[in-house]
Design a protein around this nucleic acid. Structure first.
Length: 467
RNA sequence: GCGCCGGUAGCUCAAUUGGCAGAGCAUUUGACUCUUAAUCAACAGGUUCCGGGUUCAAGUCCCGGCCGGCGCACCA
């Protein structure tokens, strides 16, 4: 294919539209511009041709005339999907469409494959996700959702920077996968002759940086969890984790609601959003409710981490949840909360006071050691963030890890393993610290009004083709 | 992993009870000096996801497999 290696262009569709909004029907501006992009439509009419050019800023019409356009015949035979560069005068046609009147043009790349129906686009999910490049230019909505995601990521970063958090990067390849309850991906390093795991969370590394004197750190990056796929789960997803020395979970809740409301403001220009046809508001402050309080209201009787395990098991059984012997009252309460409350938490809310049993890295409440200073925020029926005052006591941390190890031995393949290096880090001294994790894909779904996580991931995980 | 639904031309979709596999767009050819999903005419385009089976006859019915969507489970 004989095409140029560069094209100097000096104008974009969107800005041209606003800059020449004043141009009257049939008027010629006298200004010559160079634009480039992909041909989306072509309407030939004898010695005239009209084409729609799309670039990253929008679309503009190309107007070619046999009498004016060099190589007019070739222009009229360009394919939909071809990339072209054009030099020509900015004019408005008699019918009122702002156009670049093509003087000279060059094909920058040929589209050898046909694309979607120009009206219906591409709707086959398999094709859309496996060939996202075609989806992106056939379906503007696909592009919009990924742009929204990009804006969310940018806003999160800028707001963390603005709050004096230092962005860091921690290992994705780890000898042990810890920091969350999840099955890891396993891999192997040949030179080290060692099995390694893809990280399920950066949590413990980040707190070690706090031990080392980074008082405010954050990491925005990918984590990997070897779990099922669903419209809300991708095996690799992006998490924002941040840690602030001298804060507790109350401080972190305040930061969280301001952060998320700020992102909505940055990206959408408002904190009032419409999700799947239903409105809610990200505006701070968000209500704060304890897990016991919400669960009690849902089951119609007072329950807490101090309720007898037998009663909690009864309540769970009535909701068709089988309770393994290894679950204590705390795990039972958390489970009861999930089945009775989670889906109904539409407006943003903080759920607090998680049982210590399900929070192996969180600090105990001073007034009730069975509970932790932990919160999760929910919106649109889904968990959006998770945060807590960090457990800083190495003795307690060891005990928590050992309890996890017991669960693992009992067959829980998501239980954490003991991390001696982390305990040693705590022995060096972790100051009072609060941490936060935000699911960036989930947040992007809310901001982009998408119900499927794959719409906010450029190349979601798919089953490999076995032809 | 389990259940339900789906897979037909490059794309979007039809095809009655099991009875000759079609249309629009795209591609190719032609007409057309202001189009807007331009219009008009013509040509071409198929392993009906793959493999078996039932039948005179299978896109359609049955079995197995592949891929996807949704739900469940797991989780964020």
């Amino acid at each position: 294919m004989n095409t140029p290696y560069t094209f100097d262009h000096n104008a974009f569709a969107g800005p041209l539209r606003s800059a020449y909004a004043h141009l009257g029907d049939g008027e010629e501006s006298g200004d010559v511009v160079r634009v480039a992009g992909r041909l989306m439509l072509m309407r030939t009419q004898g010695k005239l041709a009209f084409a729609t050019l799309r670039d990253s800023s929008g679309e503009i019409q190309l107007f070619a005339l046999a009498a004016v356009t060099e190589g007019f015949e070739g222009f009229a035979k360009l394919h939909l999907g071809d990339w072209v560069g054009v030099s020509g005068e900015v004019v408005r046609t008699k019918r009122g469409e702002l156009s670049v009147k093509v003087g000279t043009w060059v094909r920058l790349a040929e589209a050898q494959h046909n694309f979607g129906d120009k009206w219906a686009g591409i709707s086959d999910f398999d094709l859309r996700y496996r060939h996202r490049e075609a989806d992106l230019w056939a379906n503007p909505a696909s592009r919009d959702s990924l742009v929204r995601r990009s804006q969310v990521v940018r806003s999160l970063r800028e707001r963390c920077w603005a709050a004096n958090f230092t962005e860091v990067e921690t290992p994705m390849l780890n000898a042990i996968a810890t920091g969350a309850a999840a099955r890891p991906f396993r891999t192997f390093h040949h030179a080290l002759d060692s099995e390694l795991f893809l990280r399920i969370a950066p949590e413990l590394w980040l707190k070690r940086l706090v031990v080392g004197g980074f008082e405010r750190v954050f990491e925005l990056g990918r984590v990997f969890r070897n779990e099922g796929l669903s419209p809300r789960h991708n095996p690799e997803f992006t998490m924002l984790e941040l840690y602030a020395a001298y804060w507790n979970y109350l401080d972190m809740m305040s930061f969280t609601e301001e952060l998320v409301a700020g992102v909505a403001q940055d990206v959408l220009g408002t904190t009032e959003v419409q999700y799947q046809g239903r409105p809610f508001s990200f505006a701070a402050p968000w209500p704060r409710r304890t897990m016991a309080e919400l669960t009690s209201a849902a089951v119609g009787e007072e329950v807490s981490v101090h309720t007898s395990r037998a009663r909690l098991v009864e309540l769970l059984s009535a909701r068709e949840v089988d309770v393994p012997d290894s679950w204590g009252p705390g795990r039972c309460l958390a489970e009861l909360f999930e089945v009775t409350c989670e889906d109904s938490l539409w407006d943003p809310v903080f759920v607090t006071d998680f049982p210590v049993e399900v929070s192996p890295l969180a600090r105990r409440r001073e007034d009730d050691p069975e509970l932790t200073e932990r919160f999760e925020s929910y919106a649109a029926g889904r968990e959006l963030s998770n945060g807590f005052s960090e457990l800083i006591d190495p003795v307690d941390q060891r005990a928590r890890f050992e309890e996890q190890a017991r669960l693992a031995a009992a067959g829980d393949d998501e239980a954490m393993t003991i991390d001696e290096d982390y305990i040693k880090a705590l022995e060096w001294g972790l100051p009072p610290t609060a941490g936060l994790g935000v699911g960036v894909d989930r947040l992007s779904m809310l901001i982009a009004d998408e119900s499927n996580i794959r719409e906010v991931i450029a190349f979601p995980t798919l089953k490999p083709r076995r032809d």
